[in-house]
């Protein structure tokens, strides 16, 4: 069996950021992402970058590792930069690349947008790097709790998320098993045209779906047998607690926001 399977990109650790209440992390990141769009001067960008880098360092996860995790979006970041570089035609001409004029605003805007993009991705990935999926689920349940009043199924949503998390590894293992079984019967997943390969997926998906439905039915039965009757009157084993460190994190973050408004031009 595959014992190293990790869901998401959580890196176990015991740093301050790891130990923060997941709600604190989500709230701060939410507002950070929002306020990134208020930055408009080099100093304000510098301040936000400083905050992001400091947070990243605090996690004690190696910075190269975090940056490597951003690999899929590096291309977008670089692409955004060059797009702005060549499309924006304001400010003074700085230089010519093969007679193509590059404007000063193009450089500054390209940098700003790419930096925003970079910060946004980096800070959100800090959440998934330092928080287990189940903690995130608990936090979402707790943060959405007020929506219960308008009959939004908060508990059900959280339960759905946690059951999905529970079954993702099981289904991955099952997919591996089925694909091996089908490969041994001669189904070829790896070669042939796109169309052939798409068709090869069918004998993989059909048994997978059949078994997933069977599992769902069994699970519903087991949950009922174990006394599940919806969110009413349930107690919770996993509890979230706001500690001193959370207050500290909020205070620091508010300071950064105040700093942001003073450094804006």
């Amino acid at each position: 069996m595959n014992n190293t399977l990790i869901i998401g990109q959580y890196v176990p650790g015991n740093s301050l950021v790891h130990r923060l209440d997941p709600r604190t992390k989500i709230v701060i990141i939410f507002f950070f992402v929002f306020f990134i769009f208020f930055a408009n001067s080099p100093a304000s960008y510098g301040l936000l970058t400083l905050f992001a880098i400091t947070s990243a360092l605090t996690t004690k996860i190696k910075l190269p590792y975090i940056l490597k995790g951003l690999k899929p979006v590096w291309f977008l970041i670089v692409f955004t930069f060059f797009l702005h570089l060549f499309v924006t035609k304001e400010g003074e001409v700085l230089l010519h690349i093969f007679t193509y004029p590059i404007y000063s605003d193009a450089v500054s805007q390209g940098t700003a947008i790419s930096l925003r993009f970079f910060l946004l991705i980096m800070v959100t990935s800090l959440l998934t790097l330092t928080t287990t999926p189940i903690e995130i689920t608990d936090a979402i349940e707790s943060l959405l709790h007020p929506l219960k009043r308008i009959n939004f199924p908060v508990h059900e949503l959280a339960l759905m998320m946690s059951i999905s998390l529970r079954f993702i590894p099981t289904l991955i293992q099952e997919t591996e098993k089925i694909s091996k079984a089908q490969a041994s019967r001669g189904v070829d997943f790896k070669t042939g045209s796109i169309k052939d390969r798409m068709q090869a997926i069918v004998p993989l998906l059909v048994p997978l779906f059949v078994s997933a439905f069977k599992r769902a039915e069994d699970l519903a039965m087991a949950m009922e047998a174990r006394g599940y009757q919806g969110g009413e009157g349930r107690t919770k084993l996993r509890q979230l607690r706001v500690e001193k460190r959370d207050i500290l994190a909020y205070v620091l973050f508010v300071c950064v926001l105040i700093g942001l408004f003073f450094t804006r031009s």
Partner: peptide
């Protein structure tokens, strides 16, 4: 009740959470 399929009655994401499930249901 303990059912046949070990996987399809495991509700929690960890052993601890799974045992808690029945207890949580009963408040």
């Amino acid at each position: 009740m303990v059912f046949q399929n070990p996987d399809n009655q495991f509700v929690g994401t960890t052993v601890r959470d799974d045992i808690a499930f029945g207890l949580e249901n009963r408040g």
